[in-house]
């Protein structure tokens, strides 16, 4: 899973097919509120939000090769920022969202410069530690975050003055922002900058000898991922109008990583599928298991590592390729 596929190798034949599938999915998602009951619509909305978090993490894990276990921190910071702003300043879209993305980026910049100096497992440890420290901060800073009670009583988002209270409208709002966020990451991934990130992932020392400074690129990627995670957090606030410390905790971070791994790191679309599975188990299956969804998720985690090293994307066979061996 840490040898993800390469966007460049998509053959010209699969590209129109992929685009057609993508279009179908978008149309299908847009039609959801018209055909699906409000509760299920809300679940799909949650999937979209978690998917956006997972995709932003994929920019780090799959494309840059930086496995983060603290990514939920920026998601949570975005959520709290949007929540606080909605309560105390304005509920008018898109201000809380933009502020959430900004806060995510800022927090990522403040912590990322330390984290991206390392790589691999060391990066994993550092992000885990940083994420947990931010979690503790949220827990102790009660005047802003509401501590362990969470931040509640958040008013509904307003669009041109009218609040979005209907589940369907709120869903479309979430879908629209998800699509924007996804498109941004897709573009970045296809840009020359994205190519540099893949180069760093595959051979960082060589990038240095080609004249690149990996640190700068990794930091920008980290901040970008933090911004989109913050955006997703802002969406979370709009959707559930409640933010708790669990939203930026270790479990959320681990589940986001799980979504990326199950889906197939480096593909961006794979993590969306992974996110769907994770949210379905946690939110739909979990309550039936007395709230012990994490047990199933843990098992899924273990199975994925053994059976699906490339995630769903590997199963789809589209980009399946064994890692080429070094010549003797």
């Amino acid at each position: 899973m840490s040898t993800p596929a390469d966007a460049e190798t998509v053959t010209t034949r699969t590209r129109p097919v992929g685009a057609a599938i993508g279009l179908l999915v978008v149309v299908g998602l847009a039609l959801v509120p018209l055909f699906v009951a409000p509760y299920e619509t809300t679940i799909i909305g949650r999937i979209l939000i978690f998917a956006l978090l997972a995709v932003s993490l994929d920019l780090l894990v799959g494309i840059t090769g930086l496995p983060s276990l603290g990514h939920a921190a920026y998601f949570g910071i975005g959520a709290y920022t949007a929540g606080w702003l909605t309560i105390n300043v304005t509920a008018e879209a898109p201000i809380p969202l933009l502020a959430a993305a900004g806060a995510g980026a800022l927090a990522a910049a403040a912590t990322g410069w330390l984290a991206v100096r390392s790589g691999g497992i060391f990066f994993l440890m550092l992000t885990l530690a940083i994420g947990e420290l931010i979690f503790q901060l949220a827990q102790s800073w009660e005047s802003v975050t509401g501590g362990s009670n969470g931040l509640y009583g958040i008013p509904a988002v307003q669009l041109a003055g009218s609040p979005l209270v209907l589940a369907g409208l709120r869903y479309w709002y979430v879908l629209a922002v998800f699509l924007i966020g996804y498109a941004v990451l897709r573009l970045v991934s296809a840009s020359p900058f994205g190519a540099v990130l893949r180069g760093i992932r595959d051979n960082e020392p060589r990038m240095r000898s080609l004249g690149y400074s990996p640190f700068r690129y990794k930091l920008v990627a980290f901040v970008l991922a933090g911004a989109v995670a913050g955006l997703a957090g802002g969406l979370l606030t709009a959707q559930q109008r409640l933010v708790t410390t669990a939203d930026l905790g270790f479990t959320t971070a681990a589940l986001a990583l799980l979504a990326v791994v199950i889906g197939g790191a480096g593909t961006l679309w794979g993590p969306c599928l992974g996110a769907a599975l994770v949210v379905l188990i946690r939110d739909a299956l979990g309550p039936r298991l007395d709230g012990h969804g994490p047990l199933v998720l843990g098992l899924v985690f273990i199975l994925t590592v053994y059976l699906l090293p490339r995630g769903f994307a590997g199963l789809a066979g589209l980009r399946f390729r064994r890692r080429p061996a070094e010549p003797a």
């Binding site: 899973m1 691999g120 799980l258 994490p294 998720l297 843990g298």
Partner: peptide, 19 residues
């Protein structure tokens, strides 16, 4: 396999045991 895979495996084990 990459070291990350082992970390992820132990993460899964941690979730299961804690639960």
């Amino acid at each position: 396999r990459p070291h990350l895979d082992q970390a992820l495996l132990t993460l899964g084990v941690a979730l299961v045991v804690a639960e």
